[in-house]
Amino acid sequence: MTRRRWLVALEIAVPVALVAAWWMSSSGSSSIYFPSLHQIMDRFWANWVETRFASDVLPSLKRLLIGYIVACVVGVGGGLVLGLSRIARRLTEPLVHFFRSIPSAALLPFAILLFGLGDAMKVFIIGFVSLWPILLNTTSGVDDTDEVVVQTTDVYRIKGPRRLFMVVLPAASPHIIAGMRTSLSLAIIVMIISEMVGSTNGIGYFTLQAQRGFAVADMWSGIVLLGLLGYIFNLAFTFTERRILRWYHASRAGAAAT
C-alpha cells in the first residue's frame, strides 16, 4: 500500500516538476519558436476558454465522437457477424485487410471528392479509420472464445439475443475494448489531419492557421490542448475499461497465480 502511494505521488510529482521546469526555463524566452509557457497559457486561456470553445473545440469533439461512435457500432456489429460465421469471414477477409491497410491520409482526397469540405467528410474519414481495429478485434475476440464456454452455452441451449449479450459479447469484450482503444487514438489523429487539410473551424484548423500567421503562442496552445484531450480521453477510457473488464483482469491474475 505504501509502495502504491509512493507511485501515485511520483505519478503526480513528475509531470508537475516537468511543467515547472518548462515554465522556468522558458520564462522571458525571446525565441520565436519556443515562447514562454506563461505566454502559451495566456493564449490557451484566451482561446480555448474565452473565445473558441464553442466555435472550434465543440465542432472538433462533435465530429470525433460521431465518427468514433458510428465506428464502434458498425465495427462491433460487423465483427460479431464475421466472428460467428466462418464463411462470412472467409469471403470478406481480403477486402477487410485491404481497407484497413490504406493509410488514412491517402483517403482524404477521396473523402473530399465525395463529401466536400464539410463535417460529413471528416466524420466519414474518422469513422472509416476507426472502424477497422474494432472490426478486426471483435472478429478475433468472438472467434477465439474459449471452446468450453461455447460448448457450455450449446449444452444449455442458450440462444438468440441472450447468447449474444450474456455470452458472446462479454467473452469477446477484452478484445473489443482493446480495438476501441487503438481506434480512439487513430480517430484523434485523423480528426486533426482532416481539419488541417480542409476546414473552416476546429482545433486542428486553428493550430495550423496560427502557425501560418506566425502566432506561435497560439499554435502551441493548440498543441497543448490536443495533448490534454488525448490524455483525458485515455484516462476516461482506462477508467471505464477497468470497471467493465474487472472480471477479466482478476481471472487472469488468478490464473497466473496458480
Binding site: D146, E147, V148, T152, M166, P170, A171, W247, Y248
Partner: peptide, 10 residues
C-alpha cells in the same frame, strides 16, 4: 474443465 465452463463475467 469447470474453471472454463463458468462465465467469469457473471
Amino acid at each position: 474443465d469447470y474453471n472454463r465452463s463458468l462465465y467469469p463475467w457473471l
